[in-house]
């Protein structure tokens, strides 16, 4: 559903209450969070919200005229089904503005049990085309879909024209090169995946080894990357590693770059995108503050004078300083990336 007459929303992540407040204070239209358990895809130690904190988050967002979304976006196995159902019930009780879900069974439960609760299809739901989105809309009445980071700008535009629901896309942050919700690379190596445990390349599996020439990064015994002295070392996410293919060592799957849509904001608005989302519930308050403030300024600037929008150097500098590898990419939005 093209949203040409509406302002594009800015959706920011928060892993705790101080970050949530910072996101709201710095210009997020909505903040998304998760409970402190395996029901969400950023199930990291020391992160996320208790029900009481989530309630306080809703309160803080509301008094500032903003909204709070809650992600329950892993795929519960039978052993963890009750935990997921309780999370849904708790979110309904707290009164979050939308629930971000991925699992078909859980969506069915939620649509039947809490028919008034607004549903968003998580990026983990892996909907990359109009038929898939139509399925979730017809079966469960989803109001919005978060698109996987695999579509080109032209494809995003075609989708918004043909889908009855709002479209939210990723605008800034780490880049999943794989279709979300269908990547088992992490569980292949560690036994834990985003789908089943809410983690990718989990910290407990990471080991650093100092070598005569630098540092090696392992994930459960698999050498993911090898850094020379003086080289900036990154977290050993499998898809960002350097491997050997045809005797050539390179980032065989993806470089550790940061997605940044600043320069195509007008195109996204014109494509009918309803909201842009910032990745990173694991990020610090300072990080979220800077990203929210910068993207807020960019969106406001666009809405004041759409025809003359141009990313300001200060925005680009601020965002680049936060980015992985200090550079940014348009990812799949730009066809040549594929």
């Amino acid at each position: 559903m093209p949203a040409l007459n509406k302002k594009m929303e800015l959706i920011c992540p928060a892993g705790n209450l101080p970050t949530l407040r910072a996101a709201v204070d710095n210009g997020a239209d909505a903040v998304y969070i998760g409970f402190r358990n395996r029901t969400n895809a950023r199930n990291f130690p020391g992160l996320n919200f208790s029900p009481e904190e989530a309630l306080e988050g809703v309160r803080y967002a509301r008094i500032n005229g903003k909204r709070l979304f809650l992600a329950i976006n892993t795929f519960p196995v039978p052993e963890h089904w009750q935990e997921a159902v309780k999370a849904v019930d708790k979110a309904a009780e707290i009164g979050v503005d939308a629930l971000i879900l991925a699992d078909i069974g859980l969506m069915n439960y939620t649509a039947r049990t809490h028919p008034d609760l607004r549903l968003h299809l998580s990026v983990q739901g892996s909907a990359t085309n109009r038929h898939a989105i139509a399925f979730y809309h017809e079966q469960f009445g989803i109001s919005r879909v978060v698109l996987p980071r695999v579509l080109s700008l032209a494809q995003v535009q075609q989708l918004t024209e043909k889908t009855p629901v709002e479209v939210e896309v990723f605008g800034y942050g780490s880049l999943c090169v794989m279709v979300e919700g269908r990547c088992a690379l992490s569980s292949y190596v560690t036994g834990n995946s985003p789908n089943s445990a809410g983690v990718c390349s989990p910290a407990h599996a990471v080991r650093w080894l100092e070598t005569p020439s630098g540092r090696d990064a392992y994930l459960d015994g698999v050498l993911i990357n090898r850094y020379h002295d003086g080289e900036t070392a990154g977290y050993p996410t499998i898809c960002k590693g350097r491997f050997k293919v045809n005797n050539h060592i390179f980032h065989s799957i993806e470089e550790p770059v940061c997605l940044n849509v600043l320069e195509i904001l007008p195109e996204l608005v014109n494509a009918g995108v309803s909201a842009i989302k910032v990745e990173g519930r694991q990020r610090s308050r300072a990080y979220v503050s800077t990203v929210a403030r910068t993207l807020r300024a960019a969106l406001d600037s666009y809405h004041v004078d759409p025809d003359n929008f141009k990313p300001r150097n200060e925005w680009i500098t601020q965002l680049n300083q936060l980015a992985e590898g200090n550079c940014h990419t348009l990812g799949a939005y730009h066809r040549s990336w594929q």
Binding site: F75, P76, P78, W81, I104, Y109, Q139, N195
Partner: peptide
């Protein structure tokens, strides 16, 4: 194998 069936509720629905 690429349809995410992780629980009986999803299987029953489909």
């Amino acid at each position: 194998p690429h349809i995410n069936v992780y629980n009986n509720e999803t299987l029953a629905f489909l």
